[in-house]
Design a protein around this nucleic acid. Structure first.
Lengths: 346, 346
DNA sequence: CCGCCCGTTGTGAACGTTCACCAATCTGCG
DNA sequence: CGCAGATTGGTGAACGTTCACAACGGGCGG
C-alpha cells in the first residue's frame, strides 16, 4: 500500500465493485436507496482501493460545501486565536475543512482587495475582525452572500437578535460590571486603557468595552476621564500607559485586554506604585497567563472558544437551512477577582 | 453590482470577449502567447463581469496546487501559532490558500485517522506536531507524498542537512547555551522543567531542549538531576514545579518554554523564594509577554515566524521543482538575559 | 509564387464528483 | 396472471478549469 500512484476515483471503485459510479456515490453519501448487498460490495472495494472522496470535485459539482473560511484580523491575539480553535474543533468534528485568511490592513485598501481574498464566491465565511478592513469585508460579504457568512464581535443582546448573521458577547455589559466593581470598592473613578476599535480610538457599538465603562461612570455621576488609546501589542500598551501609572490621582485602571493589563502591571511596578495598594488593575479575557502573573490579574472571563463553536453552528444553519438554528449557548462574561484589585489606599 | 447571482465563469468571459475559453485561461495565467489586442479585450470582459478564477476547478483540472494544509498539534502554543502566522503570511503574499487541521491525540489513533485528516491526496502539507500522533502523521506523509510535505521541528544542523523535508532550529544547542550561562553564573547545577516530547518525558532527537541541557551538565561534570515533566498548560506546570521551588538546594531552573517559566515564577513567589536572589529561572521562546513579567523573564529568543516562512518556501520548492531551493535563513536562537537570572546567593 | 514555420487561437477531452432523470427489477394485490 | 407502485440501479450532463493538440493566418526564404 501507499504507492505514489494516483488516488483511486469513484470510477475505479465502481469498476472493482461491478456497479455504476453513481451507486458508489450513493454509498459514500449514505443514501438509503441502495441494497445492503450492493453496499457491502462497494464498501469492500472502497477499503481495498483506499478510496477517499475528493473534496474539490465534490464542491465543484455543487455538493455540500464542507468548508469554512475564517477571515481574521490577527491570530496572535488571544480572542481570535481561541475563537479559531473553537471553530476548528467544531468543523473537524463534522469533517469540514477550515481555511484561514488574515486580513492585513497593510494590503487591504479597497473592496477589490477583500473580494480577492475570498477563496471562491459563496464560500461559507466567518469573519472576526473589528478593525476598519474587517468592517469593510463584512459589508462586502453581506452584499454578496449574506446567507453564507457569520460575523463574530462584541454585540448587545438586541443587536444579536436583530441580525441573524451576528455572533458574540456583550463586552459592554462585562466592562460595565468590572467598572461597577471598582467603583463599589471605593474608587472615585476608573481610567481606561483601550484596545483599538474600528472607528478610531473610541466608540463602535454599544457593546464595546469602552462604551460599557463610560456608561457606568456617567450613570454614577463620576468624572469620565479620556480613555487612553493603545495598540494591540504589549510594547505599545506599555508606552501608552505611562502617564496613567505616573499620575497618583489614578487609582484604578480598566484595561482592554489582559496583555494591556500585563503592561500596566509592569509599568506600575517600575513606577513604584504598589498593586493593588496604590493602584487597582483589571484586565479582560482571562488569557491563560493571567492567573499566574504576580500579583494575579483580576479580569473578565470570556469563553471565546464557545463563541467560535457557536459561530460555526450558526453558519452551518445559514448555509444549509435544514439544520436547526442553534441557540446561542455559552457562558456570559464573568468577572474573576484575583489579586490586582482592591480598595483605594484611602 | 454584487447581485447574489452565480459567479461568472471562464466561459462567460469568453463569450463577452468573443474569444474561446482557452484564450481567457491563457490571459488569466499570463501566458505570453496572446496578442496584446486580444488580451485587452479579455481583460476588459473580466473586469466587467468581476470574474475570479475558481480555485477548486483549477486544482481539479490539475493546475498548480496553490494551497497548503498545516497539520498542527495545538494552536494555543506560542511556537505553532507563530509559525502558522509565518506560513500564512508567506502563502498570502503568493495568493495561496491555507488550510489548518489540528491533530488531536484524542481522535487520532490509527494511521487511517490521520490519512482521513488529509484533505486530498497530494495536497501540499506542512506538519508541526512533535507528539506521538504527529510523528505518525509525518511517517504516513513521508510514505505517501514525500515530495509534497515539510516537517517543522527541533533538529540539529546535520539532521536538517540530511533530510530535505525538514525545517527547524537546533533547540538543543540553544538549551545548552542557556544552561552554560547559568553554570557560568556560578550555579552548581541546573534543574529542568520539561515540555512533553514525542517519546515520553525525555529524549527525542539530539536537538531537543532537554537533551541540550543534559549534555552541558554531563560535559561539565555536574550532577544531572532528573528532569521534571510538565504538561503544556500553565496550570500543569505550576503543579509539576512545586517540589522544585520548595527545595532550597535548587538554585536554577531551565524551563521548557515561557509559559512553564511563568508558572515557575509564580510558584517561587508563593513559596517565598526570591527571584533571582534565591532562584534563577530561564524560559524558552521569548513569548511576547515574557519581557513584561515581574521580574522580566530571561529567555531564549526563537524566530518561529521566520521558520514558518522558511517551511512554506521549502514546500513550494519541493512541490514545484522549478523554484530555487531556499537557503534556510533565520536568526539563530539567542539567549536574552533579563531579570530572572543571576548568581546563586551562595 | 510556393511551402514552411511561427505566432496565435480554437477544439475536445480530461479532472472527480453530484444532480436530475430514466430504466429495470421486484413486490403485492386484485 | 397482470399491473401499479415501490425499490434499486444506471445514464448523461453539469461544475470551471487546464492540458494536449490541431488549425488558422501571415511573413519569409527559396
Amino acid at each position: 500500500m501507499a504507492q505514489p500512484k494516483k488516488a483511486a476515483s469513484i470510477w475505479d471503485v465502481a469498476r472493482l465493485a461491478g456497479v455504476s459510479h453513481q451507486t458508489v456515490s450513493r454509498v459514500v453519501n449514505g443514501s438509503p436507496r441502495v441494497a445492503a448487498a450492493t453496499r457491502d460490495k462497494v464498501l469492500e472495494a472502497i477499503a481495498e482501493l483506499g478510496y477517499r472522496p475528493n473534496r474539490l470535485a465534490r464542491s465543484l459539482a455543487g455538493g455540500a460545501a464542507e468548508s469554512v473560511t475564517v477571515l481574521t484580523a490577527d491570530t496572535s491575539l488571544y480572542g481570535p486565536e481561541a475563537a479559531l480553535r473553537g471553530i476548528e474543533k467544531a468543523a473537524r468534528a463534522l469533517d469540514w475543512s477550515v481555511q484561514i485568511s488574515v486580513l492585513d490592513p497593510a494590503d487591504t485598501h479597497s473592496d477589490a482587495d477583500i473580494i480577492a481574498r475570498l477563496p471562491r464566491a459563496g464560500e461559507p465565511t466567518i469573519i472576526m475582525a473589528h478593525d476598519e478592513p474587517g468592517m469593510r469585508a463584512k459589508q462586502v460579504l453581506l452584499d454578496q452572500q449574506p446567507h453564507a457568512m457569520v460575523a463574530i464581535g462584541p454585540y448587545t443582546a438586541e443587536e444579536l437578535a436583530a441580525s441573524p448573521w451576528l455572533v458574540g458577547m456583550d463586552d459592554g455589559k462585562a466592562a460595565a460590571e468590572a467598572t461597577r466593581y471598582l467603583l463599589d470598592l471605593g474608587h472615585t473613578t476608573v481610567h481606561h486603557l483601550a484596545i483599538p476599535t474600528s472607528t478610531g480610538t473610541f466608540g463602535g457599538g454599544k457593546a464595546h468595552r469602552a462604551e460599557g465603562w463610560a456608561r457606568v461612570l456617567r450613570d454614577a455621576g463620576r468624572p469620565v476621564p479620556e480613555p487612553v488609546p493603545s495598540g494591540w501589542t504589549i510594547a505599545e500598551a506599555f508606552k501608552a500607559v505611562q502617564p496613567l501609572v505616573a499620575d497618583p490621582e489614578v487609582t484604578a485602571i480598566l484595561c482592554g485586554n489582559d496583555h494591556l493589563a500585563l503592561a500596566t502591571l509592569r509599568a506600575a511596578h517600575l513606577a513604584g506604585r504598589s498593586v493593588p495598594g496604590d493602584l487597582s488593575i483589571v484586565g479582560f479575557d482571562n488569557t491563560p497567563f493571567s492567573a499566574y502573573t504576580t500579583p494575579a490579574l483580576t479580569t473578565v472571563n470570556q469563553d471565546f472558544e464557545s463563541v467560535g463553536r457557536g459561530a460555526f453552528e450558526l453558519l452551518r444553519h445559514r448555509v444549509d437551512g435544514s439544520i436547526p438554528r442553534p441557540v446561542p449557548g455559552w457562558p456570559e462574561p464573568e468577572l474573576i477577582v484575583r489579586e490586582t484589585s482592591g480598595p483605594p489606599s484611602s
